[in-house]
C-alpha cells in the first residue's frame, strides 16, 4: 500500500515538474505546478509530516500559485501569453540537467542508508519520532510538537531522555521570520504600488 501510494505521488510530482519545464503557456505551467506541489504535499503526509503537508497546501498551492496566476493575468499583453524559449538553450539546459540528475541519483543510490541509520542510532539513540510520547508522531500528529518547538521546547527530542542540556528550539528564527514577513508585506506593497506608466515604444 505504501509503495503504491508513493509511486502515485512520486510520479505525479515528477511528471508535473517535467510538464512545467516543457510547457510554454504560463497558466498551464501554473496548473502543472499545482499538480507537482500537491503531490509533494501527499509525499509529506506519507512521511508523517501532516502539519508541513497542510502548510504546503495552504501557502504554496492556495497562496503562492494563486498569486502567480494573478501576476500572469496582470502582466499578460494578449490572451494565452506564450514566450517561447529558444530550442538551443532548452536542449543545452536539459543535457546539463540530466547529467546533474544522474550524478545526484547515483550518489544517493551509492550510500548505504541502512548502515548509516544504524550508525547514527548508535551515536544519538533511537529517533524519538517512533516513541510513544507527547504526540504519536508515527501516525503523523506533529502539530503540538512543532508548535512547542517553535516556542523553544523540544518535545520531539527531549521527551524521556535525561539530557544535560535541552535541545535548542526555534524561537529566534520564528521571530525573525515573522518580522521578515512584515518587511516583505510593506516592501511588496511599496514596490507594486500604482505609478505613472513610462511610455516605452512597444515592439509588438
Amino acid at each position: 500500500m505504501e509503495m503504491f501510494l508513493f509511486t502515485v505521488f512520486a510520479a505525479a510530482a515528477c511528471g508535473g515538474a517535467i510538464a512545467v519545464v516543457l510547457s510554454q503557456n504560463v497558466v498551464r505551467m501554473a496548473f502543472y505546478l499545482v499538480i507537482s506541489l500537491g503531490s509533494t504535499a501527499g509525499l509529506f503526509f506519507m512521511l508523517s509530516a501532516d502539519f508541513v503537508g497542510a502548510t504546503q497546501l495552504l501557502i504554496y498551492v492556495g497562496g503562492t500559485v494563486v498569486l502567480l496566476i494573478f501576476g500572469v493575468m496582470l502582466t499578460a499583453s494578449g490572451p494565452f501569453l506564450t514566450i517561447k524559449s529558444s530550442p538551443g538553450s532548452m536542449v543545452l539546459a536539459i543535457a546539463v540537467g540530466a547529467c546533474f540528475l544522474m550524478m545526484v541519483v547515483g550518489t544517493v543510490l551509492q550510500v548505504d542508508w541502512d548502515g548509516n541509520a544504524a550508525r547514527l542510532e548508535g551515536q544519538y539513540g533511537a529517533s524519538s519520532l517512533d516513541r510513544p510520547g507527547y504526540n504519536q508522531h508515527g501516525e503523523g500528529h506533529t502539530t503540538r510538537s512543532i508548535g512547542t518547538a517553535l516556542l523553544g521546547a523540544r518535545f520531539d527530542k527531549d521527551l524521556g531522555k535525561n539530557r544535560e542540556q535541552p535541545s535548542t528550539g526555534y524561537l529566534l528564527p520564528f521571530e525573525i521570520v515573522s518580522v521578515h514577513l512584515l518587511v516583505v508585506l510593506i516592501g511588496a506593497a511599496y514596490l507594486a504600488r500604482a505609478k505613472r506608466r513610462v511610455h516605452v515604444p512597444s515592439e509588438f
Binding site: 508541513v52 498569486l67 518547538a149 523540544r154
Partner: peptide, 30 residues
Amino acid sequence: SKFGPLGLDGQIASLFVIVLAAAEAAVALA
C-alpha cells in the same frame, strides 16, 4: 526528518522554507 535521528528539525526547516518562499514570491511578483 523521518529517517534520520534529528527529530522534527527537518520538518521545521521545511516550514521556514515554505514561508520564506511565499515571501520571496510576493516580492518577486511585485
